[in-house]
């Protein structure tokens, strides 16, 4: 278990160019604090790579490689295989990929790498759209959200589909360790990174990372928004280990989704019936969670 006082004062991610209040910044910073110096990072095209590796400013102080948008899983495999064949031990290999780089273009490489059982940590930081290229929808964009490719309008509600469930997709791979997390729940997230570090084989952590720029909320609310999404049940904290899912935080009653949605510009256009539809979908998801994982 991670204790705040034991955490290093060293910053392995510093001075980066992410927007003020970026949830992804918390993710990169805390993950590397837990993993320490002996860490190699794969950075596919995304906000994460863009804001950290502009020559000559390299904001990660551990070795990293910016790489192709679709290739995170495979690059991690290659790094891990390379280290293994060179007899190098005790080095963490981690990828930070966005939701697009994970659930859309990178899902094939991720699936292959997980199925092969290669030893790496894959962190998907989920800001629910392609932020780096200017807020286009991804397979992780939630229903009803306005993005630049799913703008709401007289004939459009915004994004028309509900989020893809990457956690369950990873479970279907029988991955040694998978977890969901949120940048607002820092201890939970760091504990999960710590677990992933000690797992032999692949570990996948899907961490919700609110994006003030893309979601449309004031930068000081990043942590608050992250709490709200968990409290209203549109996101959950869970982990899968030894064939079982454990819910890490179950709100006694789920708060109404409306407050969460209305705090963000991307949902401002939603009507009461749209919000009701979102709430119904949430409820059906939670029914499944209770049915499958909480009995």
């Amino acid at each position: 278990m991670i204790k705040m006082k034991d955490l290093t004062d060293k910053e392995y991610l510093y001075g980066h160019k992410a927007c003020p209040g970026c949830g992804m910044g918390i993710v990169g910073r805390l993950a590397t604090k837990v993993l320490g110096e002996k860490t190699i990072i794969a950075l596919p095209a995304s906000c994460m790579s863009t804001v950290t590796t502009q020559y000559p400013q390299m904001n990660y102080s551990v070795p990293s490689m910016t790489m192709a948008f679709p290739g995170t899983g495979a690059v991690l495999s290659g790094m891990s295989a390379g280290l293994k064949s060179l007899g190098v031990k005790d080095v963490n290999v981690i990828g930070f990929a966005g939701d697009g780089g994970t659930a859309d273009i990178g899902i094939q490489a991720l699936s292959g790498a997980v199925e092969r059982g290669d030893d790496f940590i894959y962190v998907c930081y989920d800001n629910e759209a392609y932020m780096n290229t200017g807020i286009q929808r991804s397979g992780m964009t939630p229903y009803g959200a306005t993005t630049t490719t799913t703008p709401s309008g007289t004939a459009s509600i915004g994004e028309k589909h509900f989020k893809k469930n990457m956690f369950e997709i990873m479970i279907a791979h029988r991955i040694p360790y998978a977890a969901t997390a949120c940048s607002s729940y820092t201890t939970d997230f760091m504990n999960k990174i710590e677990k992933a570090k000690n797992i032999k084989g692949p570990a996948y952590i899907h961490v919700m990372a609110p994006c003030p720029t893309g979601w449309g909320f004031p930068s000081e609310l990043t942590v608050e928004i992250g709490k709200m999404i968990v409290e209203c049940g549109l996101w959950y904290l869970a982990e899968y280990e030894n064939g079982k899912v454990k819910m890490n935080l179950v709100p006694k009653t789920l708060k109404p989704v409306k407050d969460y949605l209305m705090a963000q510009k991307r949902f401002k256009h939603l009507k009461d019936e749209d919000i009701k539809a979102i709430e119904e979908h949430r409820d059906s998801e939670w029914e499944l969670i209770r049915e499958n994982w909480m009995k």
Partner: peptide, 27 residues
């Protein structure tokens, strides 16, 4: 004597080779 990576595509074949080379392996 090598690590044989059963990649799921050619894009990944080269991506894995790149990852391996980056850590100092001959790929």
């Amino acid at each position: 004597d090598c690590e044989y990576v059963h990649v799921e595509s050619e894009h990944s074949a080269m991506a894995a080779a790149m990852g391996a080379s980056m850590v100092g392996a001959r790929a």
